[in-house]
Design a protein around this nucleic acid. Structure first.
Lengths: 235, 235
DNA sequence: CGGACGGTTCGGCGAGCACCGAAGCGTCCG
DNA sequence: CGGACGCTTCGGTGCTCGCCGAACCGTCCG
């Protein structure tokens, strides 16, 4: 067989989109699931606006980002959940090595991220792991034979008032490898619904404009009452 | 926030390893789960041996490949199941577009691949999908709430004589998006065990030295008897 | 209406890198 | 022992691509 796999050029092109430090920084920043403006991303990546404009053009053309123009702003976000998952998976593959914060500020920001954060549209960090573990030990989520909600789990979401809307082919429950904890946490439709519910109900709030989130006193009560989570483990 | 995410350089470097057409061709070829020699890969990718030697050096240094020297041969394979999954996921993201075979030979090779093939260490193509679907309708695999074997599924594997050895943190069941069918098929420990059993028992055999596999008459009997699969659907 | 601002386009520069062929090294085999 | 073979190392070459600043366009606001 001397014939190259026909998928090779496409694979290389896709990887090439991510294989630039500035573009990689954009994708990681956009993992918070929100839309950023071109200027914000340029400052974040530390390059000129003109440079970043070209990067955005490539990422959008490559289908990784979706854009939305509003007035003189160009808002951009990850195209869909599949792209988010891809970036997560790649980042998780990198994680094994280096994770050493340089400055004190970065260190404290890092510890906030480690305590709790959003990962695209679901919860991650110690918070995400705590929720996932609590669901598992209560028999609502099954991880020993794969990764799926149980019938009791479906009932729990329903009873708790968290609607699970099956949309397209997105799985109801999916494992997402947590960067900081090195263990899987709940993603998919259920993970997104739970995260949205937690933010809507004020169980947790975003810290600043970053991905890190903090559990509120009301949230501690709710998580303890509903899932038996020890609040001390979340700090 | 003017500080770049510390993971950006690593992410870019990892993607950069895949962002070359020759290296991408190697990774796709290695998805068959076997070890290839440097020379085989050079011919496959269509570049000089010297060029490919450098590529292998980078892929090994980057942790994507594991090498094994034997005499004057340099055998190389994907480092682990995580890398295989990563390449699969990236390839699946590309797939939506182009899938048009050029030559007749490529077309027939393509149809054989579409009928049945291995995907790293599990079954894929119509064969993989047929098995996955059969497991699902028989209540042995649950896909509606995630992706996990049921208790009945565990019993079935045991009764059928396919041992499931839990190794490290690899999930027992995992969904792997099928390139050709655009639907998930069974991967993980169970998928690998099933594939190995099928090859060991002669249910299917490799076609030539490629990833494509063909179901044998004995295999048709076994799949029909054990899972109620219609042999006609596999051709 | 005019200036500030966000974003884009363009030209040019410099670095990185994939590629090859030639030469060299170790292994295998007649 | 000598030649074939698989692989690696090394220069050298050409192209790609990320980057910037300057100029330009449209939007927002005083």
């Amino acid at each position: 067989m001397t014939s190259k796999d026909p998928g090779a050029p496409g694979l290389a092109r896709l990887a090439g989109l991510i294989a630039d430090e500035s573009r990689a920084a954009c994708l990681l920043a956009l993992l918070d699931g929100r839309a950023w403006t071109a200027g914000e991303l340029a400052r974040h990546a530390g390059v000129a606006a003109s440079t970043l404009s070209e990067h955005l053009g490539k990422l959008v053309a490559g289908g990784l980002l979706a854009e939305e123009r509003q007035g003189r702003h160009r808002y951009v976000r990850l195209a869909d959940e599949r792209v988010a998952q891809l970036v997560e998976d790649l980042a998780a593959q990198v994680a094994p090595q280096a994770r050493r914060p340089r400055t004190l500020r970065a260190s404290s920001a890092g510890s906030a991220m480690a305590a709790g954060r959003t990962c695209y549209d679901h919860l991650a960090g110690r918070l995400g792991i705590a929720v996932t573990d609590a669901l598992t030990v209560r028999g609502l989520l099954r991880q020993d034979t794969g990764f799926a909600l149980t019938d009791a789990g479906l009932t729990w979401f329903d009873a708790t008032g968290i609607p699970l809307r099956r949309t397209g082919r997105r799985p109801l429950a999916r494992a997402c490898l947590d960067w900081t904890e090195r263990r899987p946490h709940l993603a998919g439709v259920a993970g997104a619904a739970l995260c949205r519910h937690a933010l809507d109900e004020g169980w947790c709030v975003r810290i600043g404009s970053e991905r890190a989130v903090k559990v509120t006193p009301a949230g501690e009560d709710a998580l303890t009452g509903l899932l038996g989570i020890d609040p001390a483990a979340l700090r």
